[in-house]
């Protein structure tokens, strides 16, 4: 009981202190661009009503989910393919290294050509950025399959789909998850960026609108909402990761304990 109290205290202590500091230092702020926290919170409740949530936040999240899912499937599928064929990997590596170094926003005009200006384009922007960390991490993971396990599979005649399912995908999963996690934070960023082009709804779009029309407390409230969204998504991801990689974390702990 005291342990739980102590832990919640530790978890909430600093955020609370920071909140109070922000509140106090910003109270009565004359600076137009740094409004009092009280104003921001008031703007928050006034701005992010259920209607607005359905109109602006939900479409953003749906696009993010779609783009992220496509990138995950694409990245893992291509990653397994490229990772298992050394020659293909050798041929693709420089091109992939080059492509992933290109900042996604500059690709928007090209994507607009291919995917138009609707949701398809925005999803494509998200995919075009998210796919690289997933792809490259998967390639690394597949490459690093333990040869002893690979031999084990061969000697027991485990091949084809079973090998993919029980050996390759599972063994590469820590790297895949690492890639997926990077892709998630990237996806949120691209969700915002994609809404700077040809959008009329969305969280990113709304924040930029607030900035342009000098509605500063509203803009701050949008930034906070974006932060909360990122936080919530990373919590969901952690939950998912804990389930998928339970074996991996256990293994790491066991290795550490033994050494």
């Amino acid at each position: 009981m005291t342990d739980i109290l102590r832990r919640t205290g530790l978890a909430l202590g600093l955020p609370l202190v920071l909140f109070v500091v922000w509140w106090v230092t910003s109270a009565g702020s004359e600076n137009f661009f740094l409004p009092p926290l009280a104003d921001i919170l008031a703007a928050f409740t006034a701005t992010w009503t259920a209607d607005r949530f359905a109109a602006d936040v939900l479409p953003s999240l749906v696009r993010l989910a779609a783009g992220y899912a496509i990138a995950a499937v694409l990245g893992i599928a291509l990653g397994v393919l490229v990772g298992s064929l050394p020659r293909v990997r050798a041929a693709f590596e420089p091109v992939l290294e080059f492509l992933r170094a290109i900042p996604p926003p500059v690709l928007v005009p090209i994507l607009m050509l291919i995917a138009g200006i609707g949701d398809g384009m925005k999803v494509a922007v998200i995919v075009s950025g998210c796919v690289w960390p997933i792809l490259l991490n998967t390639v690394e993971g597949v490459r690093a399959v333990d040869p002893v396990l690979a031999d084990t599979c061969r000697s027991y005649g485990i091949g084809g789909a079973a090998r993919l399912r029980h050996l390759v995908l599972r063994s590469a999963s820590p790297q895949m998850v690492a890639g997926l996690r990077q892709a998630l934070s990237l996806g949120i960023i691209l969700m915002v960026i994609s809404e700077m082009f040809a959008a009329s709804t969305g969280l990113g779009f709304t924040i930029i609108q607030f900035q342009r029309s000098f509605a500063i407390p509203e803009m701050w409230s949008g930034i906070i909402l974006l932060g909360l969204t990122g936080f919530a998504l990373s919590l969901i991801f952690k939950f998912f990761e804990a389930r998928v990689l339970a074996w991996y974390h256990g293994l790491r702990r066991a290795e550490r304990g033994r050494s």
Binding site: P109, M112, G116, I117, F197, A198, S200
Partner: peptide, 20 residues
């Protein structure tokens, strides 16, 4: 009227394609 925001340089392609 349904306004769509996009940078000037991108408009010509979108018009060509019939997106707008």
């Amino acid at each position: 009227i349904k306004f769509v925001e996009m940078p000037f340089p991108d408009m010509s392609a979108a018009l060509d394609k019939g997106d707008i």
